[in-house]
Design a protein around this nucleic acid. Structure first.
Lengths: 230, 230
DNA sequence: CAGTGGCGTTAAGGTCGCGTCAAAAGGACG
DNA sequence: CGTCCTTTTGACGCGACCTTAACGCCACTG
């Protein structure tokens, strides 16, 4: 049985999340502060840690640093809206993925499963799995926040990189505007909100196109966007 | 096989670190206090020593002094964050590098490998290799706390040197203001705190620029700063 | 085939991160 | 107590970035 350790001082949230995760078939342990967390990792034999970076009293990054200095357990960070500095700092410290708060429980479980798929079978060093991802001519380096097209660097803004990151993390799968807005801009999608479209547009212009002139980012009417391989 | 000697009285930490380092392909020996350390250096034939300066019962600097009086084995110190006095004292006593605690195992191994690269091939006396790092026209000497640009000396203040040191230790990787403040100024970053910016600004003015006029220290909006190679 | 609504794209406006200068606040030393 | 050096704080301005608005196109619908 897979065990998840939730570290967050919002006990209401962890309670509900924990319930949901248990319904999904996980075993759940909870730590309400950083201090208690370290013991729990060991004695709960956690297979994965979900860590809230924004805690009022303790610095989540410090907790992460200490976890990493003592264990190689996979870590999924919950970060505040668009807090880029925290994200890269976290990934740099060896976190495996991040998710912008607030997020749906369904999405959280999806990410958890994705990390477990990556980390459990191969036993590959976790930092390897997160750092760079290449899909055809397109590649991103999450630690450096740099994208390249056919090995030439592409200069993206913060939001643009976030959106491309979400798309590339789910190659071939359609991603809704709502999720792109939440993960990329850090806020839920409002009605008549065209911000995502505009950002996708500028990403398209900055990265290249395939030989036939098509963009790797395709739009699905009424659905969202997909990153296609070729 | 390369052997690492860990000197630290936190046995839990050394145990986990040791495990990690063994996975990384090193042979690991552990000494829980200063006394036991000296014997171990000899009989474990340590190729490098990782020494915690901040030990509750013994003075790490004393241990370092005694190590240096008997051996020229490379030493990597673990120091408290921002503890400039200890760093300088340690480097003066002949330590090869330092790392602020707490640190990730990944970073520790990276530093260890860096030191081994410097010290092993040439067989040069360690004092020669001590704490100097060169990146393009820029070089720093951690023992003397001096920086040079194109081999001409650059006069930096204490904080300025710390910041440049942190940046140069992670060339090509973005470093957040929060980390620069913590490592360079010894305090967490407060809101509306512009100190880091000002220091970076004066570092930029003191060191030179590349041929195209760009500074080796580039800022990433919303992220932090990077030291680029060219 | 006209209508509607989703989407691409450009341009304009406002916000805010950051560079930099200047003055204030510490601190070491005589 | 005064001087010099380092560090921090305040302030100003620029420019990058995000958003909003507007226009036009195209797919789907009745």
């Amino acid at each position: 049985m897979t065990t998840i350790l939730l570290i967050d001082d919002d006990t209401e949230l962890t309670g509900l999340l924990g319930e949901y995760l248990e319904q999904e078939g996980f075993r759940v342990a909870i730590a309400a502060d950083g201090e208690r967390a370290f013991g729990r990792i060991v004695d709960a034999r956690a297979d994965i840690v979900v860590l809230d970076i924004m805690m009022p009293k303790v610095d989540g990054l410090q907790v992460l640093r200490r976890i990493r200095s003592e264990s190689s357990v996979p870590v999924l960070m919950l970060t505040a809206r668009g807090d880029e500095a925290d994200r890269i700092a976290g990934l740099d410290l060896g976190a495996d993925d991040y998710l912008a708060k607030p997020c749906s429980p369904a999405e959280l479980t999806a990410r958890i499963r994705a990390i477990l798929r990556r980390t459990q079978p191969g036993g590959e060093p976790t930092s390897e799995a997160t750092g760079v991802q290449r899909e055809g001519p397109l590649a991103i380096d999450r630690a450096r926040r740099v994208a390249t097209w056919a090995d030439t660097p592409v200069v993206l803004t913060g939001v643009e990189f976030n959106i491309l990151d979400v798309l590339i993390a789910q190659v071939g799968k359609p991603v809704s505007r709502a999720e792109l807005s939440q993960q990329g801009l850090g806020r839920p999608l409002a009605s008549y909100d065209r911000a995502v479209d505009v950002h996708v547009s500028s990403i398209r212009q900055k990265i290249g196109t395939f030989d036939d002139g098509r963009s790797p980012i395709q739009s699905l009417r009424g659905i969202g966007y997909v990153l296609v391989k070729e």
